[in-house]
Amino acid sequence: MTNFSAIVLAAGLSSRMEGGHKLLMPMEGKTIFERSLKSITKADFSEIIVVLGKEAEKIESLISKDDRLRTVMNPTFEQGMTSSIQTGIAEATGDVYVICLADMPFLTAADYNRLLNRFREEHGKNILVPLYNGQKGNPVFFASDYRKEILEHTDPNGCSQLVKRNTEKVDFFETNNLRFTLDIDTQTDLDKFTNAE
């Protein structure tokens, strides 16, 4: 059985959100973080590792108990997304790392499970990337074969270069589901998406 480790990135600086931390912003009675995490905890992950950084205590206080879930602090979160991915993967024990963004409150447990099932099908590929109208989305899956490469990765802004270097191993999951690309970075995003729902 394949064990999937969800690496939930909740350590960012939230520098583009005016007036506070985006993950703590309210959205239909919950915070953006709570809505995002709820779908992840309802999906079939073996373990869930929430990587904390800025406002760590406030975000940690919103996490409901789940035996699969633990938190880890990224002491260098100001250095960018890659440092948080590396912090989570250093703790992960699964066969597959699923890089989940904590600012994607529209994804459902069914969306995550659809990707888990797709990865399980195995057709010689060991990276999975959702693709909406040609636009790469999230979450991105990496088999644990990439552990060393990810831990040694130096680009601070995530693993897109690693995906490019291993194109022949990438399974692009084509979807007409916009949710795989909807993250919230600014107040405008929040207003637009909240009104659109």
Rank of each mutant, 00 (worst) to 15 (best):
K54Y: 07
A92V: 09
R70C: 05
N117A: 05
I7Y: 11
F45N: 00
I184H: 14
L13S: 14
K38F: 03
G134W: 10
D44V: 00
E60N: 04
G124Y: 09
E55S: 12
G134D: 13
S64P: 03
F4T: 07
I150W: 02
E34A: 09
N138C: 11
Y97V: 08
T76E: 02
V140P: 06
A11W: 06
V8T: 11
L23G: 07
P75H: 10
F193G: 08
G134P: 09
V96W: 00
V50W: 01
I184V: 15
N113W: 07
D95I: 02
T76G: 00
K164V: 10
F33V: 12
N126W: 09
R70H: 02
K164Y: 07
D185P: 03
K30F: 14
D66V: 04
R68T: 01
N3L: 14
R70T: 01
P26M: 10
S64R: 06
F173C: 11
L62Y: 01
G80T: 03
T175I: 06
R118G: 09
V50K: 00
N74H: 02
N195R: 15
K30D: 14
D189R: 15
T93H: 06
E121I: 14
M73A: 03
L52Y: 03
G53P: 02
V50Q: 00
V50I: 09
N3F: 14
L24S: 10
D155F: 13
N74F: 05
P156E: 04
T154N: 13
N176D: 12
D155I: 10
L24A: 11
Y112S: 01
R114Y: 04
F180K: 11
E47I: 04
Y146S: 12
R35A: 04
A110L: 11
G53C: 05
I48H: 05
G53T: 07
D111S: 10
F193S: 12
C159S: 04
G12S: 13
Q135Y: 14
K58Y: 03
L23T: 08
N133P: 11
F173E: 10
T188W: 09
E149N: 15
E122W: 10
K169M: 13
T175Q: 05
F77V: 04
R165I: 08
E91D: 12
V8A: 10
E197R: 14
V8R: 10
T181A: 13
